[in-house]
């Protein structure tokens, strides 16, 4: 459907339109590309984020410089970051994934650091008095009790990653962002609406899932707050 005026449509016509957009824009492929980039980026963000969180907790003097640095990365608009990475990583999925990772490390690292550092003293005292080594305290006490907070950080990272991966469409990374761009360039309202709604549904679903996990962890591990 072209043109810029919405007319009233019947259910059948809507389904037909969705089908048209889905096949012409290769939305199955796009969705898979999109989720692939999302999964890879999220995986490495969590890995790097938790590691940095643990490292700054172990060495608090590094905390300020590292978090200040990451903060600057956050302030830079994701579009700009993506563009800056082009000379280094070329175009396509590469820079998209790297940009997502860079953007998503901060919430995870910060929450990990805060969680590990702020476990209530009484649990640490009893663990120490029982004869746990520092390492055992980290794995058996600090980490489990920090899981809800870390999950919260990962939830934020989920939203950031979805955002950057969608942008990737602009730099030939494929994914649903590419379909969106097509719709805009072709001035095809149907494409924009269908793809936009679909991206929205995916994003809200993933955010909701991350939120549910966070909630479960809060109930299970969060009773100290």
């Amino acid at each position: 459907m072209k043109g810029d005026q919405l007319t009233t449509w019947s259910i059948n016509e809507i389904f037909a339109e969705i089908l048209r957009v889905w096949t012409t824009q290769l939305l199955t492929l796009r969705t898979l590309e999109h989720l692939y980039m999302f999964a890879v980026a999220l995986f490495f963000s969590v890995l790097a984020g938790v590691l940095i969180g643990v490292l700054t907790y172990r060495n608090p003097r590094f905390a300020d410089p590292i978090f200040n640095g990451l903060n600057i990365v956050e302030t830079i608009p994701d579009v700009a970051l993506l563009v800056l990475l082009l000379p280094v990583f070329g175009i396509g999925k590469g820079p998209t994934i790297v940009a997502s990772i860079l953007y998503s490390i901060l919430p995870i690292a910060r929450n990990t650091y805060t969680g590990l550092s702020n476990v209530p003293g009484q649990y640490l005292e009893i663990a120490e008095a029982m004869g746990l080594t520092r390492r055992e305290i980290l794995f058996e006490v600090r980490f489990p009790l920090s899981l809800p907070l870390i999950a919260g950080g990962i939830r934020i990272a989920v939203v950031f990653t979805m955002g950057v991966v969608t942008l990737g469409g602009l730099i030939a990374a494929g994914g649903l962002g590419a379909a969106l761009q097509n719709g805009i360039q072709l001035y095809d309202m149907g494409t924009i609406l269908v793809t936009g709604t679909w991206v929205g549904i995916l994003a809200v679903f993933l955010d909701g899932a991350a939120g549910a996990i966070e909630h479960i962890l809060q109930v299970r591990y969060g009773k100290w707050s």
Partner: peptide, 9 residues
């Protein structure tokens, strides 16, 4: 100890 300090998790 007084607060007992059972690990909640």
């Amino acid at each position: 100890i007084q607060n007992i300090g059972l690990l909640p998790h």
